[in-house]
Nucleic acid binder design. Structure first.
Lengths: 257, 257
DNA sequence: CGCCGCATTGACGTTCGTCAAGTCTAGTGG
DNA sequence: CCACTAGACTTGACGAACGTCAATGCGGCG
């Protein structure tokens, strides 16, 4: 994992003048550019890339950025807020496929058939940069670094999902939750937050759906971790007390033989 | 799912002269081109695309096409044969992340960090077309259809993995195996094979790893399907007798409440 | 202040993993 | 051609992990 210098994720005042209206913030000025944009661009390329974002969109907590079946036009870079993505089977079962935070790109599922195949729902008030896919395609023909960046983002998502498959396919409840907590903490840390203290933006049920567990099992496992002194849990506030112990749980083979 | 006309997957004699040496077969002549290449190219573009494949590589059953940690240079289009891909955790647990057949592209996981992050192992003698990634990148800057094609392939993989996550996260053993069989049969059918009769190229253990089950559970579930008259199983030969029943199993909510 | 959604906890049942024994098949070598 | 073997597969008995159902607690928001 690449270490990213601590950044303040709160939008700067420059972007939000007192009247509350959003003004345009160029990618080249954005404090998240290291997360969602390629590095090492020339000034001309920078300027070009600023045109990739046609506008911003604010999403209220609980609202959907896109839904399964909707036409696909754009990828979205999360500027602030927190999203879950979930797929739904015919029988209404649904499965959370990921949690996404500032600097991450969502909407990649829509490319293959020009329709979104999952829902993206804001877990807190959020704002995204809207990047029409035809522009991304056009610009990445001209800017090699951008082309490679797009490929890397998609590849990263594939690799991330491999990790989730490993988790769902072969880990037990404690390992799943430990892996989940460590992953979340690490991503928040990379964004300048505390490495050990986090506020969950999702319910136990959503965590359970992501991890292939019921909400009760998630709750019980949290309680067990707390009993064992590895974490402190008060509702959605979690403080990791023993990072190493959690790491050991994830890496220990289920050695019941 | 797009229906693809039945094709004969056996390499044509033109490609394999009597002396056994492989001669170059252009993508534009390949009977798999509808699966791995974009459609509707101009003749010049076709010719250009033929240069994307620098060579072929034969892989013996049980051998690896690439392994976790190896440098990434190329994507591979499967020409003949059958592969599994699997990721391995630190503790040696491993998880099959996919089974791949003729016409499919593997190696996408390597793009993000210029290293492969999983193993690709041939489950039967196989042959792949080697496509250096720098060429793919170069050509897709010039040929829009190819650029879009690459994006679609990666997006398709992301969507496929969403489906696997749904399966692993919320289905029970019978549903998993039914979904697996139907998926396999459908993909084989799209390649001109029987829609209901298939030969598994993988062991029960590999199926189990993919589905997040033990080999015993896979075996038992096969037996149960056979008892119920839905399939006929003799070792790796499977004949689907009641496609609808299997479909119903997949789509039926686990309605135990 | 009261309500509602979320979370916790307990009791119980089901599913699936584990362990073990035994069978089948393909491949090998005499 | 058959015996032999190793690996794959099947089947059964048992238990652990987790899901289900239900009761209760807690906190945030109107």
């Amino acid at each position: 994992m690449k270490e990213i210098p601590a950044v303040n994720l709160m939008p700067s005042n420059a972007a939000y003048p007192l009247d509350g209206h959003t003004i345009r913030v160029a990618c080249s000025n954005c404090n998240l550019r290291e997360l969602c944009m390629p590095l090492g661009l020339s000034p001309e390329e920078q300027a070009r890339i600023d045109d990739m974002v046609v506008n911003r969109r604010k999403i209220k907590r609980g609202a959907a950025l896109f839904r399964n079946g909707e036409a696909f036009h754009s990828l979205f870079a999360i500027r602030t807020g927190f999203f879950k993505t979930c797929v739904t089977a015919e029988d209404k079962r649904d499965q959370v496929t990921g949690f996404h935070m500032a600097g991450e790109i969502i909407g990649l599922d829509g490319i293959v058939n020009d329709r979104h195949t999952c829902d993206a729902v804001a877990l807190e008030d959020a704002e995204v940069c809207v990047m029409p896919f035809h522009r991304i395609s056009e610009f990445s023909r001209e800017i090699n670094a951008l082309q490679h960046h797009v490929h890397r983002i998609m590849s990263r998502e594939i690799v991330r999902e491999h990790g989730v498959m490993l988790l769902l396919g072969s880990m037990r409840a404690e390992e799943r939750l430990a892996a989940f907590l460590l992953n979340l903490a690490q991503r928040l840390h990379a964004r300048g937050f505390s490495p050990s203290e986090l506020v969950l933006r999702m319910t136990r049920e959503e965590i359970g759906s992501y991890l292939g567990l019921t909400l009760e099992t998630v709750s019980r496992t949290f309680s067990k971790f707390a009993e064992d002194g590895m974490v402190e849990v008060r509702q959605r506030h979690v403080r990791i007390l023993d990072m190493d112990a959690l790491t050991r749980i994830v890496n220990q083979q289920a050695c019941n033989y």
